[in-house]
Amino acid sequence: KNAAKIVNEALNQGITLFVSDNKLKYKTNRDSIPSELLEEWKQHKQELIDFLTQLES
């Protein structure tokens, strides 16, 4: 999976991924984040940080 797909899947579940101080963060109104999503974010962390940083610049 690529970073764009992961970010879109998160958005579809009401979760916004973003970068703050070079760290991957998220915002959501959900009570909890599915563990498989958290695991996927960890596996692709640097790719996600790079992707989101490019989007914001």
Rank of each mutant, 00 (worst) to 15 (best):
L24Y: 01
N2Q: 13
A10M: 04
F18P: 01
A4K: 09
T53Y: 07
S20H: 13
G14D: 05
F51W: 09
I33K: 02
F18Q: 03
S57A: 13
K1W: 12
K23I: 12
E36T: 10
S35K: 11
A4F: 08
E39N: 08
G14A: 04
Q43Y: 11
E39W: 08
E9G: 04
K25W: 10
I15E: 01
I33N: 01
N22Y: 06
E56Q: 15
K1L: 10
D21T: 04
T28W: 03
N8H: 13
E39M: 10
N12M: 15
L37H: 03
K25T: 08
N29Q: 11
L38M: 12
A4I: 07
E36I: 11
N8A: 15
E47M: 13
T16A: 06
D50F: 10
L24S: 00
K23C: 09
N12L: 14
S35E: 15
L11P: 00
E56T: 12
F51C: 02
L17Y: 00
A3P: 13
A4T: 06
F18C: 05
A4S: 11
L24A: 01
E47D: 09
D21G: 12
K1C: 08
D21V: 04
K1Y: 13
V19Q: 03
Q46T: 08
D31V: 12
L11V: 07
L11D: 04
Y26H: 04
P34I: 03
K23Q: 14
L52F: 06
A3N: 02
Q13P: 00
D21K: 06
K1N: 11
N8R: 10
S35F: 12
W41A: 03
E9T: 08
E56I: 12
Q13L: 15
S57P: 12
S32M: 08
L38R: 06
Y26M: 04
E40S: 09
E47C: 06
E36N: 11
Q13N: 13
Y26L: 04
S57N: 13
K23E: 15
E9P: 00
E39V: 08
I49M: 07
N22K: 08
I6V: 04
Q46M: 09
V19K: 03
K1F: 14
S35R: 12
T53L: 14
K42Q: 14
S20L: 09
S20T: 10
L38K: 06
L52P: 00
K25R: 13
V7P: 00
F51Q: 02
K25F: 14
V19D: 00
E36W: 09
V19A: 05
A3C: 07
L55K: 14
S35I: 13
T16K: 10
A3L: 07
L11W: 08
E47Y: 06
D21F: 05
L38H: 05
Q46R: 08
P34G: 04
W41T: 02
E40N: 07
H44E: 02
N12P: 01
I15N: 01
T53A: 07
K23A: 10
N8S: 13
L48A: 00
N8V: 11
K45G: 10
E36P: 07
Q43L: 13
W41K: 00
K1M: 09
I33Q: 02
E36Y: 11
K27P: 01
A3D: 02
N29G: 11
A10P: 00
I49F: 06
D50K: 10
Q13R: 08
K45T: 15
K27S: 11
A10F: 03
Y26F: 09
R30G: 09
K23L: 10
I15K: 00
K45C: 12
E56M: 12
K45I: 15
L38I: 12
N22M: 08
L48N: 00
E47W: 03
V7R: 03
L11Y: 12
T53E: 07
Q46F: 07
A3R: 01
E39T: 08
K27E: 10
T28I: 03
Q43C: 06
A10L: 03
N2E: 13
L48E: 00
E56F: 07
S32R: 09
L48S: 00
L17I: 05
E47K: 06
S32L: 08
N8F: 15
N2C: 11
T16D: 05
E9Q: 07
H44G: 04
N12C: 08
L11T: 10
W41V: 05
Q43M: 14
L38C: 08
D31E: 14
V7I: 13
F18A: 03
N22P: 01
L17P: 01
Y26R: 01
I15R: 00
S20V: 15
Y26Q: 03
A10D: 00
V19S: 04
I49N: 02
N8G: 11
E39I: 09
Q54G: 12
K23M: 13
L55Y: 11
L11K: 12
A10Q: 01
K25M: 15
H44P: 00
L52C: 02
I6D: 01
H44M: 08
K27F: 08
L38Q: 06
R30L: 14
L52I: 06
Q13A: 14
G14Q: 05
V19I: 08
V19T: 05
D21A: 07
N12R: 07
L24I: 07
L37V: 06
L11S: 08
E9F: 06
S35T: 13
E47N: 05
I33S: 02
G14K: 04
R30C: 06
Q54S: 15
H44V: 04
L55G: 10
D21S: 06
E40V: 13
T53F: 06
L24W: 01
I6Q: 02
K42G: 09
I6G: 01
I6P: 00
K1T: 11
T28H: 07
K42V: 13
Q13W: 12
N12V: 13
K5L: 15
I6E: 00
S20C: 10
Q46W: 09
V7C: 05
D50W: 11
F18K: 02
N8K: 14
K23F: 06
I15H: 03
K1V: 14
I33E: 02
S32V: 11
I15A: 03
D50P: 03
F51M: 03
A4V: 07
N8E: 15
D50T: 11
K23Y: 06
K45P: 02
T53P: 02
P34C: 03
D31Q: 09
F18I: 06
W41M: 07
G14S: 05
L55C: 08
F51H: 06
S32C: 09
I6M: 10
H44A: 06
D50C: 06
E36L: 07
W41G: 01
H44Y: 14
P34M: 03
T53I: 14
N29E: 15
E40H: 07
D21N: 11
F18L: 06
D21M: 07
P34S: 06
N12E: 15
L48K: 00
S20N: 08
T28P: 10
V19L: 07
N22F: 07
L38P: 03
N12Y: 09
L37F: 08
K5F: 10
K1G: 12
K1D: 08
N22I: 03
A4H: 09
A10E: 00
E40P: 02
S35V: 14
N2H: 12
V7D: 01
N29M: 09
Q13S: 07
L55I: 10
L17W: 01
E47T: 06
I33D: 02
L38A: 06
N8T: 14
N22C: 08
L52K: 00
I6R: 03
K23S: 11
E56D: 14
K5I: 15
E39Y: 07
S32T: 13
S32K: 12
P34V: 03
L52Y: 02
D31H: 09
L17E: 01
A3S: 05
S35Y: 12
A4E: 15
Q46Y: 08
E36M: 09
E40K: 14
N29V: 10
K25V: 12
N12H: 10
A10H: 01
K1I: 11
S57C: 09
T28K: 03
K25I: 07
I6F: 04
S20M: 11
I6W: 04
E56L: 11
L11A: 15
H44F: 12
R30T: 06
D31I: 09
D31R: 01
N29F: 11
V7F: 12
Q43T: 15
S57Y: 08
W41E: 00
